[in-house]
Design a protein around this nucleic acid. Sequence first.
DNA 1: GTTTGCAATTGACCTTAATCAAGACAGATT
DNA 2: AATCTGTCTTGATTAAGGTCAATTGCAAAC
Lengths: 264, 264
Amino acid sequence: MPGKKPPCIPSGTSSENINAPSQAVDTSNTTALFKGLSEENLQSLLSNSTVRSIESGREIVQHGDEVKHLYVIIEGSVKTLRASAEGEEATIRMLTAGDTFMDAVIFMGGTSPIRATAIKQSKLLMIPAHIIRQQVLRDGQLGENLLKIVSGHYKNAMQQIDSIVTKTPVERLGYYFLKLHMEQDPNSMEVELPFQKSMIANHLGMKPETFSRALKKLKSIGIDVDHERISLGDAYSLCHYCDPDTAFSCPKHGTPDCKPGGCN
Amino acid sequence: MPGKKPPCIPSGTSSENINAPSQAVDTSNTTALFKGLSEENLQSLLSNSTVRSIESGREIVQHGDEVKHLYVIIEGSVKTLRASAEGEEATIRMLTAGDTFMDAVIFMGGTSPIRATAIKQSKLLMIPAHIIRQQVLRDGQLGENLLKIVSGHYKNAMQQIDSIVTKTPVERLGYYFLKLHMEQDPNSMEVELPFQKSMIANHLGMKPETFSRALKKLKSIGIDVDHERISLGDAYSLCHYCDPDTAFSCPKHGTPDCKPGGCN
DNA sequence: GTTTGCAATTGACCTTAATCAAGACAGATT
DNA sequence: AATCTGTCTTGATTAAGGTCAATTGCAAAC
């Protein structure tokens, strides 16, 4: 396997390190991490943190690194993935502003089982791992916030497993679109793909070619994708791909037209 | 899809409910959950808990249930899984004594995205979810313990995703055997399958037939499986299926014979 | 306006694991 | 011992998705 060699360059490269200005971080909508923290505890986190800019494509954390920070994305996007020695990748999460990562890893013990890569020019808030670990013992609210965050990741991972094992590529794609639709704007008939198609394909456990063919099949039921714009035929066209779990948080749930995949 | 109907009978069936005798639970080796808790906080958890026996095959939590307890397995085994309406299942975890479940779910918000089923006659300690949530805010140690547990689950889920996406069935099986080998007894040349083969097959994202054929291939490299006994040809025969992450916690790591899958 | 580069698409082909259908085997029951 | 039951194994076939290779399309760079 020549050619595609896993990058072995030490990270921490051409990136400016600024000392954490607490005003640089919007603590209100940025994250569930800071929710409900006392002013004192919040400051204690922020005053120890730094902000760092990183350019697209750079590795933030490598497989096997000792993880020294919890990261909050201030702007840009990042993906987390597992990569095999053969160069094959399995994308775990794709993140945008407000998301955190390495939040779970710092409680795992041992080195990082995942890699994190910037997929856009990004600005990251870095909170030292030892500060987090220390403060969790004192601040129950922080613990609860982290538990909610990590549990959420776990839930997504379980859905990802489920998708890959039990669903066809077309169904996986439909399900992914549905979730995008719901988190972006459940009333709009347009959805936007927030990431590169090949990256989404990998996240859904399929090859770009298969992704492309799946798009074609969705077109035949009224879901048209032009570049990164998805337009839905009618408001219910994605409902077929719904699962009971997602239905629960859907405004259309209960409507006569709501027939999630399994109920028929 | 006739025949295999998803069970829609309310749970909470023929199961004896005993009021939590704290001496019924071995708090020392049972769980990471209780580790380092003050006597007072531990008692506060246990005094509110109940113990329940459940027979093999019974549902403990169904998809969509509101989850009212965190469960600790005192004896027996349990699996957690996601099931589609078509009757297809994706096994997430397979648990034995000392393991906890619904630990993450109670922090997710909403109803349970997974099902839990007893796969052996089991005895469970049930700690009310509201007690846990409440106590996390007061007891940082409990929060840390839960974070470690849930992060561990997340890590396993990521490895599961990775396995299914990037590895062949034989590799997945080898990897699974390796992990069994390491957690059971890294020095023994014998490993025991703790679960039914068809269940392991599902957990690894393959059909029982494929599992069976994978066993055959492993036999040709000296890993022989007779019923639930796995015997290894030599101590390093599973090393080929190792990943850098697992290598890290392997006693053989660093040995000249240690060549994890990717290093060659 | 042309060129270059990358992502996405399309088609032809092939590999792999799922499917379907028997058959083997062990453990329990009588 | 004989039957039954469920699990596992084995073989033949199929279909889904991967692979390979060529092409399109767009956007940035020249």
